Amino acid sequence: MALSIALSLISMGIVIYLTYKPGILEHLAPKRLPGIFVAIGVTFLKVYFFAAKIRFLADKTINWMASIRIALTWDFASAITPSTIGGAPVATYAMTKEGIKLGKSSAIVLYGVLLDQFWYALAVPILLVSSIYFNVIPDETGMVGNITMFVIYAGLLIYGGLLAYGLLINPKAMKRMIEVVFRLPLLRKFADKVNAEADNMVDYSRELRQKPISFVVKAFLLSTLSWLCRVALPVIVVLSLLPAQEVLLVLRSLAMNLAFLIIPTPGGSGGVEGLFAVFLGPLIDRTAFIGLAVFVWRLITYYFSIGLGIVAMLWYVNTSVTEKLEDINQESDKTAEHGKT
């Protein structure tokens, strides 16, 4: 977390240093500033749709508070781990603390990731078609930027296809892969428990395949709404400062969010700020506003996620400590009774 925050602060500092001009705040339009509160509201909407998706995939076996805690924990973990890893492993742990079996929680996380892949599969053709009419990829990125975005598009589609195959068509192949991994010397002692949970994952995958199409549509809709909030946030932040080309802002925000997925730093820090400046910066008429826009956007999305996520994680930590203390007390009571006997 410290590394992620440090990278974020350094990169924001560089952007602000390169773009800031004294007196720029005097050019702020007061009538636009309420848009920042709209952005904050959209942030909470994103969490709501994310939590609703988790609760829906769990067949509503957990309440709303548990779903929100899991969503906040997932966002928090995503903010402090490399973007290529994401918060899925921590989300799986959070679900087990909410009473969902490990195998089922793993399948829920994988299915949630798969829904994201469906969204990417929808977003990629939208961007490709839009590129015919709009300059979606900034000219500043040159040929390297265009090739990189094409590789990202192709990678997302291939990964989505493999995940769909493993989760919906042949979950036993995924189970065999897990069994192979846990034959390694350092992991062998966990093999029996993990293999049992892999069986649960296969069972839940079978349940998912038997769900009606309405289930898939609703789950995809919730996932899409959460992603649309994510795409809308940079657009709202920029428009809350000054006017810009709305349609191009949305398209570049979408492309930028896909590019975020390959940044290897914790939470994408140090890279996402730069991508914001590269993708959306040219659309901001006053260059001095770029640093301010980056700061407001990261404050609302990244730092809010960390703050709320810490609260959610502390709840799980406190729960674990309480359970541990109860186990110790029970063992002490048993030892005392045995001594009396």
Rank of each mutant, 00 (worst) to 15 (best):
L233M: 13
V15G: 03
G309F: 02
P82S: 02
F49V: 07
A121I: 12
M149I: 05
P171G: 08
A232F: 05
I262P: 08
K324H: 14
P212N: 10
L102H: 12
R230S: 12
K211S: 07
P234K: 07
S4G: 14
L241D: 03
P125W: 08
I126V: 13
K340V: 12
G142N: 04
N195I: 11
E246T: 12
S253C: 12
K104Q: 15
L261R: 13
E197T: 01
L233F: 03
A173K: 12
N257E: 15
L187C: 02
K31V: 10
K104R: 15
I262C: 14
I62Y: 09
I40A: 03
N63T: 08
V231G: 05
V151M: 10
S4R: 06
I284L: 05
D75G: 04
A288L: 11
I108F: 00
V247T: 12
R298V: 11
D203G: 00
L184A: 13
A107R: 02
S205H: 04
P34Q: 02
I284F: 03
T287Y: 14
Y20G: 07
L45V: 04
G13I: 11
A51L: 07
L167S: 01
H27T: 15
I137H: 12
Y17E: 06
Y133I: 14
F50E: 11
P234T: 07
G307T: 15
L3Q: 14
T81F: 12
Y120K: 11
R69W: 04
E26G: 14
A91V: 06
E273R: 14
M95C: 08
M12G: 12
L221K: 00
A121V: 08
I152R: 06
F190I: 09
D333I: 06
M256L: 14
V217A: 15
K53R: 09
E207I: 10
T19D: 13
I126H: 00
T61E: 15
F295Q: 09
A232Q: 00
D199T: 03
R206H: 04
F260W: 08
Y111I: 09
I16T: 13
D203L: 08
V124W: 01
L308F: 08
D59E: 11
